[in-house]
Amino acid sequence: MTLVVGYAVDPVEAAPLRLAAALAPTGGEDVVLATVVPRGFDDPRTDREYRRFLVAMVREAQQEAVQDLAGDGVPPVRAVALEAPSVPAGLVSAVTRVEGSLLVLGAAHGSPAGRFSTGSVAGHLLHSSPVPLALAPRPWPTAPRVERLTCAYAGTGRSREALAWATRTARAWDVPLRLVTFAPERPPMLPSETGLRTEALVSAQWAEQARAQLDEVAAGWRGPGPLPGTHVAAGSGWAGALAAGDWLPGDLLVVGSSRHGPLARVFLGSTATKIVRASPVPVVVVPRGSARSHPAPDDTPDRT
């Protein structure tokens, strides 16, 4: 599996490097460090000085990062720099060029400790990336390698796709798989004439439905890999539900996301964004269709 690490040099981010280092022992035969630089003028004479400066700066920062990764025991890393009109576009073309199968990104600046907050780059790619996206919350309980995949499962089409990816990947990485459904309790509508805990009832009902769904998946399990464990994580709001996830150090959460246009993203928000924002462990987001077009190396036929 080829990991493409989206690496910004100004300011330097350590989170994507840490996540890449954690993913490499299980999933990174091949790690590519990709830095996107702004596209210059068509006539190179106009900004030759600036470009020279930029190239030197990127090269220096990338060298440091490569050594840093080597220190973590990551096999030889390639570094590429691409010119592109925007960072997401540049990362997508990097992924296509090196046939990457997972794009590793850092957290946006200013996110609270231990939480990922989607910056404009990740926020854009969350619903449009051609390959799954690994997102690093800034400091997270670091583990030297991935010990378990936890797949968020809600019974929707997108979570079945995430499950298909997680199943294959757990097998390829030789780690156990677990299914979890989140049952967040919303705040009630105010003023509420049905009491302030109405939503607890809705969340309890969803937890019941979720348990039945997970049992169904387990009953129909045909592998590959052993029967996954299941868990319903209920709590107050998405933060509470995610906190109730029974996490291990080395857990990696896998979430599906639907393909939304920019307008829908702004006005509806998305479950994937909410989960990513509240997750205490690194997250792999599988945008719809992304797992199918770039299958894992030892792919088994898709079952969805």
Binding site: E185, R197, A200, A204, G235, G237
Partner: peptide, 11 residues
């Protein structure tokens, strides 16, 4: 049904 998370309830 509804009281399980009383301590965690935001309100």
């Amino acid at each position: 049904e509804t009281g399980a998370q009383t301590d965690g309830g935001a309100l």
